[in-house]
Structure formats: C-alpha cells, structure tokens
Design a protein around this nucleic acid. Structure first.
Length: 493
RNA sequence: GGCCCCAUCGUCUAGAGGCCUAGGACGCCAGCCUUUCAAGCUGGUAGCACGGGUUCGAAUCCCGUUGGGGCUACCA
C-alpha cells in the first residue's frame, strides 16, 4: 500500500512554525516511504478564513523546500483540494448517517447552548451537549427547525456506554469512556462541516494512510474513530505530535519572537538550516547526528525516531545551526545568497544594482563570521560606500587612546604616510607595514589597529583588517584615514 | 472540576532492565589561537521531578504524588 499523507492547514493567517513543522513531518514521512504528500486546504470556518493566507502557506512550504504531489494549485486525482469545494461529499455522508440513525438533527439554538453551559459550570458539571434533541420526537424537532428558518446542526450519536480505544503510533492504545463524550456537531447550521466530519470524510476519500497532527487532537480522536465506524470507513494510522513550546514553556507566541516562517526568512535564516532545526524538534536520527542534508533527513526519518515530549523552540540553537550552514556554503553560493540582502539593506547612496561580486576576495572571511545572512550588510557596507563613513569621531579614541587625542592623531597620521608608501598593495605588505609601525611607535598592535579599523570601516567589528584594506584600495584607504584625522581635530580633546 | 497526554543537563536529545561512575549538540565557563568579531582546537560545568514497589539488578517496568500541556465550541 502506498503511503499517502496530507497537510491540512486552515487559511487563517501567517503559517506558524509549529504548524509548518507538522507539514515537514508529513512530507519527510511521505518522501521516506516513496509515497505521496498532498496539501488540502481546510477552509470550513468561513468567519476565520483570511484572504491570501493560502498563498502564504504555499510560500512558506516552498521556501523550506517542501513540494507536494497534489494540491489546490496543481490539482490531482482526488480534486478538489479545498474543503469549501467539497460540500456535496460531506452532505452525502451526513445523509447516510442520518438515514442510519448514527446522527441526528438538532434544533438547539446557540442561546440555549450558552445557557446550558452556564448552568453546567455553576453546578460544576462537566460541560457538553445534553442530548436534548437526541431523543425528542422527530416531529417536535422538525417543527422547531422550521421556526428557526430551517437552521439546524447535525450531531453524531455517541454510544451511551462502552469504551473507544484509539491507537496512536507513538503512545499505543489510549482509552476513552464514551459516556464522557458528548454528541458533537458534524455539520454546522451554515451547511459547512466541522473539522471532525470533513477530515474523516476527506482522509478516507483521498486514501490517506497516515495522519500526523498536533497533540491537541488526541482528545477528539475517539470521536473520529466512532465516525469512521459509523461510516464504515477504514481509519488511518494516527500520529499525534507533541507541541512546540515557547521559552517559558507556554504556547509558542509572538512574545517569544518570530512565530511565522516568513519572519525567519526575513531575518536571514537559511531554509535548509530551518528545516534541519525543525526536523530535530521532536525527532532524532541517533545519539549524535545534528547537521544533515535534506536527503539524509529523508533517508533517516520515520515514526520510530519521533519523541513524545513537547519541545521548546530554542532560537540560539537555530542561530548556531544557521551559522554552520552558512559556513558550509561554497563561495559562489554564499555570494549568490548575500546579493539580495545587500540589494535590500545597503544605504540608498549605494548605486544599484549592487555587485556582490566585489566581495569575492573577502567573502570567505565574512562567511565564517555571520550567523544570519542579514548580518552581512553590517560587515560589508563600507566596501560599497563612497565618501565619509557614518561613525562618531569620538569612537576613534578607543580603549588604547582614551583621553589621548594627540596620540591617536599622530598614530593615524603615521599610518597614513606609511601606507602611502606600500607597494604593491597587498594584504601581506600592508600587514608588514602596519606591524612595523606599531613596533616603531612602541604600541601594542591592537592599540594601533583599533582606530585604523574604525577609520577605514566605520565600525568596531569588521572583517580582518589587512585584507579589508587591501580590497578597499589605496586611494579610498588613505582618504578615509585623512577623513578620520580631520574628525579627530574636531573632537574636544 | 472531569477526561487525556507528557516528565533525562538551562535547551534539543540518545537511552527500548545489566553496555550508564547516563552519551552527543546548543548555551555557559576556562585555556590556546588572535588586529576587532567570529571560526577552530582543548578542557570543564550541568540532568534521570519525588515516593513507593517489581527484580539479583531500573533512567528504563508498575503504582502513587508533584509539575507541565491539551481537550471540554455550530474554531481548527
């Protein structure tokens, strides 16, 4: 039997990392088993459906490198792949259930239900539908439905006693007492199915073999199982995944930083790093493997590697992995990835299009320093800028020259004249010249190099100095040293 | 409140009765390297929630306690 797995997002907003992680597991499982992975849009709540959310879900999947074999955008043998377009199928199931007496129409109004809930709460009774319409005479229910302009819901008739046993692939058999389950709604008054009905009908219709979903569904799994039975359908294998928690052990939310995949992309995370990180949130290949290519993950991924405990989203670990992925990029790939960031974030004064290629000589030096692609801009903007750099003159008086303006000025002037004589203009020659100068001035190299770095890059943190100066060229370097000296003159000494 | 799930270093995890004086990774600390920042290398810190059983032997099995999470909607 071919493995068929589905990802069923609700188009209600920006795709959440927890949600996308489920999609990733779906996809990895399907790919590992050579099966099919499909996307099915679960838009059964008209009020919550958000315009454009569907496309954002696709974007998030594509960004991560997840592809699908069937879906609303590409069709497939089980089309349509949007639940709002499959209403007749749910109606058909409802008619069958009604005819069999496995379900019943309910005329109770939301107001009555609210009141019921309040009473139950005040009496410390377990909340839930009281079965008001379950046993009333049909004629009476129908008359009431007519009074409500034909509005009614359909509820599943849950057995009054007995136990329903759900088998979860991760936890084994879990038993639920039927008496504690209420007759939940299958079809709402607006004619749309609830998740319970739609997912059961569609998973069966689409020949889904394995259902991966969040832990929060485990409690309703017995309802689904009962529905499968009532419909005489074969249930899939259920895999309830532990949720992803925020750093405070609560639900992952905006308070903890980014929760949508798009935001991570916008911060300079690499999709392959994100995928690796997400895969490791609740799954492990063995006791030591951390960094894996997509193919390696697919080859190793299976249910037996999944855990049962909820994992905390650790941004530091993600960031560290991202740095490792960036360092592993080839020089060309790094340059190609960095291009768009320079284009977008470099000051407007830099002419476009930006040529990331001019970074080529120093790219490896930068590559091993950044953990996010976005950081590249801070490490390289001075290569692209012409004219005075944006920094404060006071910063030239670092720890070495604190309260010693004339010392710093003298040093910079010396540096300038020494560098003026360097020929050829190579990192090696520049280094020799500057080290020789530090010696002559009886300054520790770090003391001399710090103001030079700021003068030349405008920053206290920068790529290695000599290579930087070499790439900058003699003319620009000398001009910047000159500019730094002038700024020092103006600093109150 | 009721029902259900979960419980190994701060974090992600390995561990399916003896291989565990519990392994790896991130983080953190120290050292080396060093022009800043990284990277790299070396070493270190830190954990089986608690209490009972079962067993010759338990992180691993059972029960309880505690803690965390979920569900309890005409949302998914």
């Amino acid at each position: 039997m071919t493995v068929r797995v589905r990802y069923g997002p609700s188009p209600t907003g920006e795709p959440h990392v927890g949600n996308i992680r489920t999609a990733l597991f779906d996809w990895l499982f399907a790919r590992h088993h050579g099966g099919q992975f499909l996307v099915r849009i679960e838009d059964t709540d008209q009020r919550r459906t958000v315009e454009g959310a569907e496309e954002r879900i696709f974007d998030a999947l594509r960004w991560l490198g997840i592809d699908w074999d069937e879906g609303p955008d590409i069709g497939g043998p089980y089309a349509p792949y949007r639940q709002s377009q499959r209403l007749p199928l749910y109606d058909e199931a409802v008619e069958k259930l009604l005819a069999d007496g496995a379900a019943y129409r309910c005329a109770c109004t939301p107001e009555r239900l609210d009141a019921l809930r309040k009473v139950q709460q005040s009496h410390k009774q377990p909340p839930g539908y009281d079965g008001h319409c379950r046993s009333r005479p049909l004629a009476e229910v129908e008359r009431e439905i007519a009074e409500h302009e034909g509005r009614f819901v359909v509820r599943l008739r849950i057995p009054e006693d007995g136990v329903t046993e759900v088998v979860d692939a991760l936890r084994g058999a879990v038993s639920f007492d039927n008496a504690l389950l209420d007759d939940h709604v299958l079809r709402k008054a607006d004619g749309y199915p609830t998740y319970h009905l739609a997912s059961v009908v569609d998973d069966a219709a689409m020949a889904i073999t394995h259902v991966f979903r969040g832990d929060e569904w485990l409690s309703s799994a017995p309802r689904h199982l009962l529905l499968y039975r009532a419909l005489a359908l074969e249930p899939p294998v259920f895999v309830h995944l532990p949720v992803i928690l925020g750093p405070d052990k609560g639900k992952l939310s905006k308070r903890h930083g980014a929760v949508s995949v798009r935001e991570y992309a916008a911060q300079g995370f690499l999709p392959e790093a994100m995928m690796n990180f997400l895969a490791l949130l609740g799954w492990a290949k063995d006791d030591r493997t951390v960094q894996m290519s997509v193919d390696e993950i697919i080859a190793a991924f299976d249910i037996d590697g999944l855990g049962t405990t909820s994992a905390t989203f650790d941004l530091e670990r993600l960031t560290s992995m991202n740095g490792a992925y960036i360092r592993d990029l080839s020089a060309d790939a790094f340059l190609a990835r960095v291009g768009p960031w320079l284009e977008e974030r470099l000051p407007a004064a830099v002419p476009r299009p930006v040529d990331a290629g001019i970074l080529r000589p120093v790219a490896p030096l930068i590559q091993e320093r950044v953990k996010l692609l976005s950081e590249v801009v801070d490490y390289t903007d001075f290569f692209f800028l012409e004219g005075p750099l944006p920094y404060a003159g006071e910063s030239l008086l670092g720890k070495g020259f604190r309260n010693d303006r004339s010392g710093a000025l003298a040093a910079l002037t010396e540096v300038r004249s020494v560098l003026a004589g360097v020929e050829p203009w190579t990192a090696e020659r520049i280094e020799a010249a500057l080290r020789g100068l530090a010696d002559r001035l009886e300054l520790k190299p770090g003391v001399l190099f710090t103001p030079v770095r700021i003068a030349v890059t405008g920053r206290t943190v920068a790529p290695p100095l000599f290579e930087t100066i070499a790439l900058l060229g003699k003319e620009r370097t000398l001009a910047r040293l000159q500019d730094a000296a002038e700024r020092l003159e103006q600093v109150a000494g």
